[in-house]
């Protein structure tokens, strides 16, 4: 167990450090966020479509895209450096590698989300502060769900022809339950509805996370070369 944690942390720290040094994916995600904000501002008629109606969907499009950028980079780095080979010494290591990758990707996406959310609150004039607690919970749960599945998918995609194209193809259907739940709950929170109304979506999201994190841990081993 101690071994598991140690390797997990080592893998996560290495990935985060690498990304921190080059920062290209992080900057791309932020540029995309700014672009989305600007385009949606000019693309709608402010008197006909309220910013509040659009905000949840736009928020989650941005978060999802940031996630995909991070996922693509994570395994592409491995492929370039063949660094994985040295880590794969025992079955416990494989789970640790997976968890480490998930942690690193979570850190990346989390960082983008932490910057994007205040920007959205500002430009879309949505009441984030009053619902910040539940909102952060929703964001954390949904991000965990799609990063967990995305990390597994990218570990396969990176070893195929057309790797960058393969990841969205593999991942898209799996994003539907977590992102739909997140958008619905975000919309309800921005509209000031009591959180109890969103319990159905919350249960769906938590159920998804439990099942898919467990399944991905179980099956990650099958995506690694012997």
């Amino acid at each position: 167990m101690h071994d598991l944690l140690r390797v997990t942390w080592a893998v996560a720290a290495k990935d985060v450090l690498l990304e921190f040094r080059s920062r290209t994916a992080f900057v791309s995600a932020l540029v995309f966020t700014a672009l989305v904000l600007a385009i949606f501002n000019f693309a709608r008629d402010p008197t006909a479509v309220s910013a509040r109606d659009l905000a949840p969907g736009i928020l989650w499009i941005t978060f999802t895209f940031a996630g995909m950028l991070g996922l693509n980079r994570a395994f592409a780095l491995e492929r370039e450096n063949r660094a994985l080979d040295g880590l794969l010494l025992s079955p416990a290591s494989r789970t640790a590698v997976y968890l480490g990758k998930v942690l690193a990707n979570l850190a990346f996406v989390g960082a983008v989300e932490a910057v994007a959310l205040p920007l959205f609150a500002l430009f879309f004039n949505v009441p984030v502060l009053p619902v910040l607690g539940p909102l952060v919970l929703v964001i954390a749960l949904a991000t965990l769900g799609f990063v967990a599945v995305g990390t597994l998918m990218s570990s396969m995609a990176v070893n195929t022809r057309l790797a960058e194209l393969m990841l969205p193809v593999l991942l898209l259907p799996f994003l539907v339950p977590p992102v739909t739940s997140a958008v619905q709950m975000t919309a309800q929170l921005f509209a000031g509805r009591p959180f109890s109304e969103a319990l159905g979506w919350l249960r769906l999201l938590v159920g998804y996370d439990v099942i898919f994190v467990a399944a991905c841990i179980l099956f990650f081993e099958s995506t690694i070369e012997e």
């Binding site: 597994l152 396969m156 259907p173 799996f174 539907v176 339950p177 898919f212 399944a215």
Partner: peptide
């Protein structure tokens, strides 16, 4: 095989969504 199994697990969640 991994994708097949995960896909099968996904179906009830999409239905629920």
């Amino acid at each position: 095989a991994v994708l097949g199994i995960l896909g099968a697990l996904l179906v009830p969640f999409i239905y629920a969504s």
